[in-house]
């Protein structure tokens, strides 16, 4: 067996695929945007050469598919060249979405852990709640999102909290399921040992169940943080919200600003990647602290 190397097993294959994708994207951009150029040329009564088409399709104002460099330019324009407080700054919108995400994620994670502790320690809760927790995962929760927003707005709760509630709703299920599994992961032999020590159930919980549930907790937290970002974005779609990445998506689709949609999309992707990475780092840090082998 060869030792795995970063260059050969990570960078080279992933890099190749990414380069291929970008190349594919450019080709697709030319083909998808070409009809518009041909129409314009035909209307003007001029002939247009292929090289001109290629050049023009790279710089349309409202392309069907913007070329990658257009998207990057748009992101650069709306992040670095704009004041952060400006309504046109992508950072401002990303912050609005991020704050809703984090609030919802926090509440959701706490709620999920509490529910899981209840389920593990109370048999009636286990039998009656668990099937519903699983069943509710099959329900398209996001479909309720617009209603929650509108209804809460009608009662006078607006701003951050309604969006955060959707994130909460989405993020607590993975935490419950993961934590129940994690809190039950100690083997009978370990639980028996705690029993022979005459440990109370609180001691068993803090010294055995809680530490052994950590890997499960962080795995579900990763899922939860990604899904709460989705929740926050979808929460911004209805009601014509004025700020946030979801609102940018919606405004872009209303006015045909494709470049803006793609920029918001990239920003959301970057946000998701950073959030998942932070949870991942916390995961390794906690496990290292607990003495696990890397």
């Amino acid at each position: 067996m060869q030792e795995p190397s970063f260059l050969r097993d990570k960078l080279l294959p992933v890099g190749t695929v990414i380069v291929l994708l970008i190349a594919l994207w450019y080709v697709a951009a030319v083909f998808l945007n070409a009809p518009f150029e041909r129409d314009t040329a035909a209307r003007a009564g001029t002939e247009i050469t292929f090289s001109e088409i290629v050049r023009n399709t790279m710089a349309q104002e409202r392309p069907v598919l913007p070329a990658p460099h257009q998207v990057i330019a748009e992101i650069w324009n709306t992040t670095v060249n704009k004041a952060i407080t400006s309504k046109r700054s992508l950072i401002y919108h990303a912050w609005i979405t991020l704050s809703a995400t984090l609030l919802g994620f926090g509440i959701g994670a706490a709620l999920g852990i509490l529910l899981a502790v209840g389920i593990v320690h109370n048999r009636a809760m286990d039998r009656s709640l668990m099937p519903w927790v699983i069943a509710s995962q099959t329900i398209p929760i996001l479909a309720i999102a617009p209603m929650i927003i509108v209804v809460l707005n009608a009662v006078g709760i607006s701003g951050l909290l309604p969006k955060a509630l959707i994130s909460t709703y989405l993020s607590f299920f993975p935490v419950v399921v993961g934590m129940v599994k994690g809190l039950r992961s100690p083997e009978t032999i370990q639980l028996d040992l705690m029993h022979t020590y005459n440990a109370s159930s609180a001691q068993t919980f803090w010294k055995l169940r809680w530490p052994s549930s950590m890997p499960y907790l962080f795995t579900s937290l990763k899922v939860a943080v990604a899904i709460s970002l989705v929740g926050a974005i979808v929460g911004e779609l209805p009601t014509g919200a004025v700020a946030g990445l979801g609102a940018r998506l919606l405004a872009g689709s209303y006015y045909g600003q494709t470049v803006q949609i793609w920029a918001a999309l990239f920003m959301a992707a970057a946000l998701a990647a950073v959030l998942v990475m932070i949870v991942g780092f916390a995961h390794t840090a906690v496990l290292k602290r607990m003495g696990a082998k890397p």
Binding site: V230, L249, A264, A272, A273
Partner: peptide
């Protein structure tokens, strides 16, 4: 899988 794919 971690991205908000719904945005497309």
């Amino acid at each position: 899988s971690a991205l908000p794919v719904i945005g497309v």
